[in-house]
Write a protein that binds this DNA or RNA. Sequence first.
DNA 1: GACTCAACTGCAACACGTTGCATCTACACG
DNA 2: CGTGTAGATGCAACGTGTTGCAGTTGAGTC
Lengths: 164, 164
Amino acid sequence: MRLPGVPERPGTGSASADWSGVRARLHDGGLRWTPQRRTLIDVLAATDGHVTGAELVERCRAIDPTTTPSTVYRTLDVLEDLGVVRHHHGPDGREEFHVLPEREHGHLHCRACGRSWEVGAAEVAPMLEALRRHRGFEADISHMALVGRCGDCVAADDRAAGGD
Amino acid sequence: MRLPGVPERPGTGSASADWSGVRARLHDGGLRWTPQRRTLIDVLAATDGHVTGAELVERCRAIDPTTTPSTVYRTLDVLEDLGVVRHHHGPDGREEFHVLPEREHGHLHCRACGRSWEVGAAEVAPMLEALRRHRGFEADISHMALVGRCGDCVAADDRAAGGD
DNA sequence: GACTCAACTGCAACACGTTGCATCTACACG
DNA sequence: CGTGTAGATGCAACGTGTTGCAGTTGAGTC
Ligand SMILES: [Mn+2]
Ligand SMILES: [Mn+2]
Ligand SMILES: [Zn+2]
Ligand SMILES: [Zn+2]
C-alpha cells in the first residue's frame, strides 16, 4: 500500500525493479535481511548502469558512515548469486558492477579514451556458440570485457600517423 | 663460444628466444640496462606459459632478495611496450603474463575447476572482425579472457542434476 | 677516468579487495 | 516473549598492484 506522497520515481533507479523481491529471496535461501544489506540495496536501487565496487562502498558510507568494505563486497557476492547484480573487470582488473541488467551483455573498453560500451549477447553469440561446439566451453557473457581501441581513437591515430 | 659444461637446455625457457635483442632494443629507445632488469629477464627466460605478476616478483626475489615489487611491475610495463610480454586478467582480476607468445591468443578460464586454455586468434577472428566492421572497435586479443565453465565441468553438472 | 643528467630504483603511502576469527544478531521455534 | 543457533558483521592483517618523490646510477661525452 503505497502512500500517495511518496512516489517511487519510476524510470529512476535500475529498471524500476523488483527490489521488494530480494528480501523474500534471501529468506528463501536461509539468508538474512540486515540493516547493512538494506543500505546496499538502497544504493543499488538508486544506481543506473555500471559502477565500481569502491564507488558502491563510498555511496553506502554516504548513507551509513559505519559501512565496512568487507560487508559490502560480501553482500555483493550474495546478490550476484541471486542474479541481482553482475560484475566484470575493467582494463586494470578492477571490478565493475551492473545492477539488474535488462538484457545480458558484454563490455568494450577503449584504452585510449577510457570510454566503454555494451555489446549485446546476439552480437557475440556466434563466437560463443563456436566455443561451445568446438570445446564445450560455456562462456559467461556478462563477465566478458574486451579491451582495445574504439573507432574514434583508431581514426584519430590514423590521421596523425599515415595521413596524406 | 658456449662451454660444453653449461648446456643451454634447449626447449626450456620460452621459445629459446632472442633475449639478447632486448638489451639492444632498450638502448634504442633511450632506456637502460640495469641489474634489476637483468634479473627479471633471467626469470622470464626460464619461464614457460602463463605466470602471475606476484609469482614473477617471488622468482626475482629468489635470485636477488632485495627485489622490490614496484620495480618489477614497472619493468613488466616496459617489456610489454616492447612486445616481449603480454598480460591479461584472471577471473579475479589478477594479472597473468605470457612470455614471448609465439602466436597471438586469447584465454579461457573455467570457474569450476580453475583450469585455463588458450584460444587461437583465428578462432575468435570472426567476432572481432564483426566488431571492427560494425563499430570500428579493434579488440586486443591477447588481453581477452573469457570466464565460464569448461566442457568437463558442464558435463559433470549435467550428470549430477538432470541425469537419468 | 671524471662529468652530466635523464632514466631508474627503493621506499612509503595508498587503492582495492579478500580472508580468518571473535562477536553479534536475525529469525525460527517453543 | 525468551532461547538457540546459523548466518552476518567488524576488525585487523594480508595480497596485489600503483604512485609520488627523493636519491642513485647507467651510459654517452669529453
Ligand atoms: Mn589489463
Ligand atoms: Mn571476476
Ligand atoms: Zn577511444
Ligand atoms: Zn572446469
